[in-house]
């Protein structure tokens, strides 16, 4: 039974467009704030992971490459990668690096640091990216934030691609910081999911079925 394709099934195109635009003008990196804010907005006000389930461009992109184009080895994601310790550990690490990026932006804004026209891959390797900055009407901190944010987006996409090839197409989703955060928000709102299939009719008022 083939399901009819909807407009949001083509959102995978956003990933290559976003990364491509950042190659020519780093200020386009600011558009990535949508990928940060929208999932949180949907989780907080809608109480769902609709963004992950339907609109996530990266998830679709990885699915396309891994499943349709067959670039994934389709091996099980390692057990340690699926643990809560790793998922929340990666989220904390991600947050620390994000705030470090914000601090660097602050330093440039305050005049205590100079604009670094490079992209930092895997939070370590400085890759020259000066061609994507043409000098603008905006303050230097605007460009600094763009370089930092683009670094995060490019690094996480590369990690997603690596685990896509090594394991399952959407292995990135297992420890995606946005997915972890939104699931945490949804769990806070909704509690634990009901017991699958119920308890067989002998109700002990455990509320496990959600009733």
């Amino acid at each position: 039974m083939k399901q009819k394709k909807r407009w949001y099934d083509y959102l995978w195109i956003v990933t290559p467009i976003y990364l491509g635009l950042g190659f020519f003008n780093i200020l386009f990196a600011w558009l990535g704030m949508i990928f940060f804010c929208l999932p949180l907005f949907i989780a907080i006000f809608g109480g769902s992971k609709l963004y992950c389930n339907r609109y996530c461009d990266r998830g679709q992109f990885l699915s396309l490459l891994g499943s349709r184009l067959g670039l994934s080895r389709n091996r099980p994601t390692p057990r340690w990668m699926r643990t809560k310790v790793f998922r929340y550990g990666f989220l904390i690490f991600f947050f620390i690096m994000f705030f470090q990026m914000l601090f660097t932006t602050y330093l440039v804004g305050a005049g205590a640091g100079s604009l670094g026209e490079f992209v930092k891959l895997f939070w370590t390797f400085r890759v020259p990216w000066h061609w994507a900055y043409h000098g603008t009407l905006f303050a230097p901190w605007v460009a600094q934030f763009a370089f930092g944010f683009y670094s995060i987006m490019l690094t996480s996409t590369l990690i997603g691609l690596i685990v896509m090839v090594l394991f399952k197409p959407r292995s990135w989703c297992v420890f995606c910081p946005m997915g972890t955060m939104t699931q945490w928000i949804c769990t806070l709102r909704a509690g634990k999911p009901p017991v699958e299939g119920g308890c067989g009719g002998s109700c002990a008022s455990c509320s496990g079925c959600g009733s």
């Binding site: 992971k49 992950c52 389930n53 998830g59 699926r82 972890t180 699931q183």
Partner: peptide, 9 residues
């Protein structure tokens, strides 16, 4: 250990 990514859906 479901992460609610929706790939199964």
């Amino acid at each position: 250990h479901c992460v609610a990514c929706g790939s199964c859906v």
